[in-house]
Structure formats: C-alpha cells, structure tokens
Design a protein around this nucleic acid. Structure first.
Length: 157
DNA sequence: TAGGCCATCTGGTCCT
DNA sequence: AGGACCAGATGGCCTA
C-alpha cells in the first residue's frame, strides 16, 4: 500500500512538473484563441494541483482499497466454500485445453486493446515511456475525478 | 542483479 | 456442456 501511495505521488508530480499537462483538453478549442487557451490551461493546472495535493490521491487510494475489500467480502467470491456445494470436477481434453488457451489469449488481447484506448484518453507526455496498465488505471481515476470536480465548479458559476 | 511489467498457461468458478 | 472470467504460477524482457 505504501508503495502504491508513493507511486501515485510520483506520477502526479511528474504530471504537474511537466509542461505537457498544458495539453489537457479545453472546453472548446474552437471557441478560444491561443492566449486565452494558455491562460485557461495554467488555471486548470493550478486547480488540478490543488485538487490532487489536497484530497485527490488519498481518496483514490482508499477507494481502490475499499473496492478490493468489497470484492473479497462479496458473497460471490467464496460462494462454494460458504454453501458447501460439492465441487464439480471438470474433465478436459488436450484439444479443449488448447482451445481454451487460444480463447484466453484472445480475451487478453482485447483487454489490452481496451487499455490502449484508455491510454490515448488520459493526458501523458510525449517523451514519457508507455504507461503500464496499473498506471493507466490510476491516472484515469485521477483524471476523471479532476474533470468531474472541474465540471461541478463550472456548473455552479 | 533485483524488481517491475507483461504474456501465457492453467485450473477453478460462474453463467448461459 | 462449454464459453467467459478470474487469479495464481512461471518465465522472459527491460531498467535502475
């Protein structure tokens, strides 16, 4: 857990200290000229900094932990052990095993495609090495939280 | 060389 | 019954 916290901190600090954060999507690039966009971006960056440094990451980390706990405690997770239902021993031929392996490979491939799509959506830096899957998920959580907050504040004004 | 990340295989469980 | 999903194990690759 401590390592995860450290990771989150370092990731977001890189995110802030790098100028690429200025590439965060604006409300409408067509509506605003460049100087306005630049000012707007700086304002967003500062607000994101406040957001993450004050309450963003601690919240993210605790939500992830609670989510894991919820899964572990969900009735579906240990259904058979709780109900004492007899375990069905499944006989599988080598051909079936081979087919299952191929299906699993396909499934993981589509999962990775989804991760690639997500990587394109979260703001990163051009020179930065490719985000890992866990980095992508965590950054997406932070990004969504930040944008939601931004949306709420703009809505109230 | 240790640690992180990933692909793959595998067996268990859930769902249709 | 069989496909989908999941998590553990394992080995390869890369980087600090």
């Amino acid at each position: 857990m401590e390592i995860q916290g450290q990771f989150l901190d370092s990731t977001v600090m890189d995110f802030f200290t790098d100028g690429s954060f200025l590439e965060l999507p604006l409300k409408s690039s067509a509506e605003s000229n460049k100087s306005e966009a630049s000012l707007h971006s700086i304002d967003i960056r500062e607000r994101f900094y406040d957001f993450a440094s004050i309450h963003g990451f601690a919240d993210v980390e605790s939500k992830v932990s609670l989510g894991s706990l919820a899964m572990e405690n969900s009735p579906d997770c240990s259904m058979s052990s709780l109900t004492g239902r007899s375990k069905r021993k499944r006989v599988i031929t080598s051909n079936q095993r081979h087919a299952a392996n191929i299906r699993e490979r396909k499934r993981m491939f589509s999962l990775n495609e989804a991760f690639d799509d997500l990587r394109k959506k979260v703001p990163t830096f051009a020179y930065e090495k490719r985000l890992s899957r866990i980095e992508t998920l965590r950054l997406a959580v932070v990004y969504i939280s930040f944008m939601s907050e931004l949306l709420n504040k703009n809505g109230k004004q």
